[in-house]
Amino acid sequence: MLNVLAYLIGLVSLIIVIPAQIPLLGWANWFALPLIVVGIILGALSSKDGGRNFCLVVLLIAAVRLTLGGGLI
């Protein structure tokens, strides 16, 4: 059950992160980061690793975008 919740939280975060790839919308990644961390925690508490790994991939996408944009743009 926690794995399914981690997947759902990861999907919601991905819906936020995808438009944040557009220039000048990078600040939206800051709204997704807390959700991603919650998904990673729930995925870590689960007996399966799929939800956690999905959230880690979404975190990687958001972190790379924030790094390229200087953390804000």
Rank of each mutant, 00 (worst) to 15 (best):
M1Y: 06
N3E: 09
V4E: 11
L5V: 09
A6G: 06
L8V: 03
I9R: 00
L11Q: 08
L11I: 14
S13R: 00
S13H: 01
S13D: 04
I15K: 00
I16A: 11
I16P: 06
I22Y: 13
I22E: 04
P23N: 08
L24S: 10
L24C: 10
L24K: 11
L25C: 08
L25V: 13
G26Q: 07
G26L: 11
G26A: 11
F31K: 05
L33R: 07
P34I: 03
P34E: 06
P34G: 11
I36H: 09
I36F: 12
I36G: 10
V37K: 06
V37T: 13
I41S: 06
L42F: 15
G43W: 00
A44T: 14
A44W: 12
A44I: 05
S46M: 05
S47L: 04
K48H: 11
D49V: 14
G50I: 04
R52S: 02
N53P: 03
N53K: 14
F54C: 02
F54R: 01
V57E: 05
V57A: 15
V58L: 11
L59H: 09
L59V: 02
I61M: 14
R65T: 15
L66I: 14
L66N: 13
T67E: 07
T67H: 11
T67A: 15
G69P: 13
G70L: 12
G70V: 12
G70T: 13
G71A: 10
L72V: 14
L72M: 11
I73D: 08
I73V: 14
